[in-house]
């Protein structure tokens, strides 16, 4: 194998590595830059965002009343923080459904 051919082969390998790297960067950008979300319809984006309000609400529902009312001076209905959370979620859902 001549020196010239070896050099050519080595350069080709380097070029292939560079191409592989650039190709991967493109894939990484596609992933990191959320380009895969470009095709998601806007209505679904809105649904995902509204879901973000419901997740903490559902989480709150799993909590025991004793835990929610711990430290409260009485057990009147308005002190139930689950109701506060429910009201927050309703208002925010209406806002995100309208705008």
């Amino acid at each position: 194998m001549t020196i010239k051919y070896r050099r050519l082969l080595r350069n080709r390998l380097i070029l292939r590595k560079i191409a592989f790297f650039l190709n991967n960067i493109n894939k990484t950008t596609y992933m990191l830059n959320f380009n895969w979300c470009n095709n998601v319809p806007e209505v679904w984006a809105r649904v995902f965002i509204i879901l973000a309000f419901f997740i903490p609400f559902i989480f709150a529902l799993t909590m025991k009343k004793d835990y929610i009312l711990m430290g409260a001076s009485d057990k009147r209905r308005w002190r139930d923080l689950k109701l506060w959370v429910l009201l927050l979620v309703i208002v925010q859902t209406l806002i995100y459904a309208y705008f």
């Binding site: 959320f34 380009n35 979300c37 470009n38 998601v40 806007e42 984006a45 809105r46 995902f48 965002i49 973000a52 806002i95 995100y96 705008f99």
Partner: peptide
């Protein structure tokens, strides 16, 4: 201008994936 949810390829600092993943979560 009156929409809270902007497309993912929106040319503003607020595309919806950024709002959902970066800001909300």
């Amino acid at each position: 201008h009156l929409s809270l949810v902007l497309p993912a390829d929106s040319n503003t600092p607020y595309p919806w994936p950024g709002i959902l993943f970066g800001l909300t979560l």
